[in-house]
Design a protein around this nucleic acid. Structure first.
Lengths: 129, 129
DNA sequence: GCCGGATATCGACATGTGTCAACATTGACG
DNA sequence: CGTCAATGTTGACACATGTCGATATCCGGC
């Protein structure tokens, strides 16, 4: 049932529009429109790296001060990219005192993986259930 | 060994730069740079739909004339999007007489799925091997 | 309460991108 | 070989996007 599609999509999109492999049936224009923001979010070198840094960081979370040193970009630019990732539903945001932590969203990753999974039946429910 | 990373990447990028889950370790700037074109290619509603149409079409292939009717876009625009998908290594191109067929590239799909796969060990080699 | 550090927002700028109309190219078929 | 249908290429345009500096906001410590 609840296979990570439920609370995935960011505010404003219908929750059922993901998780269907692209190869199973033609994705509808509406589905495409609602998935694309997530893809746009990761289709940038800085943001892809930021996401990977958060995902692979201890506990699946990292504060901005952990991330900044990895880039030659200004702090506002990093902040902007993190906002994009957050608004796309790929990472959560949590404020702890002076610091802001960004947290991985495993459900979002599963949804993306599901998009590209071959529709072989066996592979589709392997991870989730 | 040959786990779909070999002949994946389009001309000009090193072939080993994909297939490592984002959550396993921070993706390197170089890896990011070489994967991003693929992500950019699908981060557009028209192209995502085109890719899905090709993938889900009978035999994993479709000619331009099959695709055109699904869109309100001009033929040159569709042609442009297909070129982007092809140059990103997501679909192959095959000319048959007057028609041009675009073919799905399962290896590319696996590579993308692998990017977002949780690094749980079990899940990583589930589909491929 | 004030100061300093961490992060976000704003405004501006250069560059990239999606789209089209016009045209070029290719191949089938008489 | 000339015509037509299918597809690709080019140039131009509006719009989105990545980046920065300047500034604002929030919070902890003194």
């Amino acid at each position: 049932m609840s296979n990570s599609c439920d609370d995935l999509v960011p505010p404003g999109a219908d929750p059922l529009t993901c998780c269907v492999p692209l190869s199973r049936e033609p994705i509808s224009p509406e589905q495409a429109t609602s998935v694309v923001p997530m893809l746009k979010a990761i289709a940038d070198p800085a943001r892809l790296r930021l996401l990977s840094l958060v995902l692979s960081h201890e506990g699946g979370e990292a504060c901005v001060c952990d991330l900044l040193p990895h880039f030659d970009l200004s702090q506002p630019t990093i902040s902007h990219h993190l906002k994009v990732l957050h608004e796309a539903g790929l990472v959560d945001r949590e404020k702890r005192g002076t610091w802001v932590y960004y947290l991985a969203r495993p459900a979002a990753m599963e949804a993306l993986a599901g998009l590209f999974t071959a529709d072989t039946g066996a592979a589709r429910t392997a991870v989730g259930a």
